[in-house]
Design a protein around this nucleic acid. Structure first.
Lengths: 186, 186
DNA sequence: GTCTATATCAAGATAGAC
DNA sequence: GTCTATCTTGATATAGAC
């Protein structure tokens, strides 16, 4: 029996990069197979369709963010500002690449109208992120204001990533981080 | 000689709607032809490729915004706040649809890494918009602040449109308008 | 579990009749 | 200027050998 070349988790990781840089419709099953060193036919042993692998990528992102990234907001040994700083940095590390932008943003605009399943997972990702941010902003804002600020931070994050790709410079994202931090006491 | 069914301008108008709702890669030449009531083969009489029609759509948007939308910022018979309000409304009317979001945002994330020509036109669109917004914000801000606020307004606009599509509600865009208006004296 | 081979279909684009 | 017919390619997906 032949050697197993990859694990499902490894495939999901590589597929994440491919989808982020090429988008959904412009990514072929060959692209995905090649990225993990499999023949196209072999790829179907792990995922039955392109929709299935995309869903697995989104679900893995959601789980990772909920288990490894969002919980930092409850670390009371750190100042709210420090927690926000770490949250934003981790989010960037998980979702962004310098050349390709945000995988969630890229996939959202391309698929939200066509694949309700994708939209559901993406919505959950944004919802937990907004909850985490709201928790931090509550340290010096009313509940209503904290929620609005959290939504605004997410909105600016995605908008800034788009602008950074058009202008090919990072300053928009940096300033977005700074504005978010300015919402908390220093 | 056969009847001419459509003009180039009409095609560009219909194609704008199709590209906005289906994106670039998921739009086929058949989709475009069908939208204007032509056979696929006939469509090539007007545009030699999908890239060409997309470029024409972006260029037309750019020209329309520069000639018909952005100039409102120089209408000194109106208050800066009223001018901003009209500018934002016209931008929305030109670029957005309730179901499909912003054509510029949609096309940007999908093509910016692949088609430098698209990126050039899109960048010009954002640049003129930022210039127009900066002009308005100059009425009560320093040059540096006005530019930052203008960039922030654009960023929030695109981010808010994305969020409004995920959550399927309009409030994000409304609040984005309100925040922009709050930058000017009432 | 991986491979090669292949079925099926739709895409972008062209040719030529009217 | 529009049509039908067609070429060519690349896509998703499946079948079956090893």
């Amino acid at each position: 029996m032949p050697l197993q070349k990859v694990t499902k988790k490894e495939i999901i990781g590589k597929a994440t990069d491919v989808f982020r840089s090429k988008g959904y419709h412009n990514t072929s099953m060959s692209d995905l197979a090649e990225a993990v060193g499999l023949q196209k036919g072999s790829f179907y042993h792990y995922f039955e369709s392109k929709e299935a692998i995309m869903k697995a990528v989104l679900t893995e992102l959601k789980n990772y963010l909920n288990e490894r990234v969002n919980p930092v907001v409850f670390d009371e040994s750190l100042s709210p500002r420090e927690r926000l700083s770490r949250l934003l940095k981790s989010f960037g590390k998980t979702l962004l690449s310098k050349e390709s932008g945000c995988i969630i943003g890229n996939i959202t605009l391309e698929t939200v109208a066509i694949y309700p399943d994708f939209r559901t997972i993406i919505k959950e990702i944004f919802e937990s992120w907004i909850i985490a941010l709201t928790h931090l902003y509550l340290s010096n804002h009313s509940e209503e204001d904290a929620l609005k600020l959290a939504q605004q931070t997410v909105i600016e994050f995605e908008g800034a990533v788009m602008m950074s790709r058009i202008y090919q410079e990072n300053s928009f994202i940096q300033e977005c981080y700074q504005r978010a931090l300015a919402n908390l006491p220093s």
